[in-house]
Design a binder for these strands. Sequence first.
DNA 1: CAAGCAATTAACCAGTTGGTACATTACAGG
DNA 2: CCTGTAATGTACCAACTGGTTAATTGCTTG
Lengths: 249, 249
Amino acid sequence: MPKAEPESTTPARSTARQGWKQDPASVKADILKVATGEIATYGLSGSRINVIAEKCKTSKRMIYYYFGDKEGLYRAVLECAYESVRSGEQDLKLDHLMPIPALETLVEFTFRHHSQHPDFIRLIMIENVHNGKYLAQSETIKEVNAPAINRVKKIYERGLQEGYFREGFTALELHWYISALSFFNVSNRASFSMVFGDSLGSAEGQERLVAHTKEMILRFVLKPDHACRYIGADRSENGEPGRPALNPA
Amino acid sequence: MPKAEPESTTPARSTARQGWKQDPASVKADILKVATGEIATYGLSGSRINVIAEKCKTSKRMIYYYFGDKEGLYRAVLECAYESVRSGEQDLKLDHLMPIPALETLVEFTFRHHSQHPDFIRLIMIENVHNGKYLAQSETIKEVNAPAINRVKKIYERGLQEGYFREGFTALELHWYISALSFFNVSNRASFSMVFGDSLGSAEGQERLVAHTKEMILRFVLKPDHACRYIGADRSENGEPGRPALNPA
DNA sequence: CAAGCAATTAACCAGTTGGTACATTACAGG
DNA sequence: CCTGTAATGTACCAACTGGTTAATTGCTTG
């Protein structure tokens, strides 16, 4: 058992005391970065702290010095991943958009954001295999995720007030649907493409999936009249789905 | 390296020669069953063949005798899981239903079927963490999953011909959407409920999710006029979403 | 019954793994 | 310059792990 956690709560501040050839914070940050990659790749039980230490060009001892044990390292990786992903979600400016485009934007952003952060998705997959055991130990993470729901909530409530959206959903449910479609796209790509071919993984396939996902969420949330009018109006890029008006004939 | 795989290709045939106190096929089947549970719970690298052997009340040697090595066992578990899940999907009789109810039935079945087989979902999650490496080695599994696509395809094509569905989708895409929503419900329940509370995991929450998922898929696939007419007509059980007619006013 | 073979057991092994004890280095403050 | 302390490197270990060797048991068949 190491004596105590060192003080540096903020990793990667390079203006700290240059205690060695490099400041300890960067060592800690490096361990975290490498561990994230290793654990995301091999899982908690599949990753080896020896390997992590080697890849950090530091000693195994350092990992235990900073993170206590393997689970401590994993917890730190989880929290850090959640935080860094959250921080990348800030600048969306959805309030400036009308509810429908705002929702479209959010869905598209979520979909693409997930697909651009496969390691984060993998960590969540792994954590789910562990039944959320380590997520449960972290108080930080619950706070970190509240904004995600609020984003949906604001859009949905505005859409309700302005008469675009159907009533009867919760923001949590909407977030769930958006997450499900965006998450699955990354999490199950391997098995899906292995079994059915990876036509949906190609650039075109992915564009179809984003477009469809957006459309799916919108069609679901919109009031019928708005749905029939709105959908298809801007769906000119894509092929058949989405027709210009209610009655094609 | 064990000499050769024993002949029994069909596990669990109990009428085999009663070679010992119990027939070897049941030993093999038992190993497979226990291994499925262990691997689904702890992952490939997280599970221990010692533990599996103990739980089987057999020796570790038997596992190597029947499955060669740990990966061989895992492959067998994967294939067996896919097969047994497939076999539970046969008796749906979707051909006797009109396209719209057929699709509804399929979605609802898929959703509930997934939630009733969490171990299978977990195995797929784990296999995806391995990037489908072992799935790629199995030829069986591709064949096993073809019917899933065909089921969707038949419904979709009938729906097209009879004028209910919009054109421009592939059966694979539709299957993807149905799978995504059904799979996510199981795969991410832990992390989701850990972060947002498990209101969606309760009995009522689940019923809302099934209903919404069905509705979402239908709204997406149906032609606008059918969508407005059909949706909500049988949506009397649930609360607000789904209104009786196109123009509520 | 002897031989051959499938099924099974128990002991064993070498490499790995998470984790630690202990010495050491470098800086900071007195 | 001396000492405390944060930071680090080295060597080490006990437990475990996947995997194996070799002997044994019971059935079947000639």
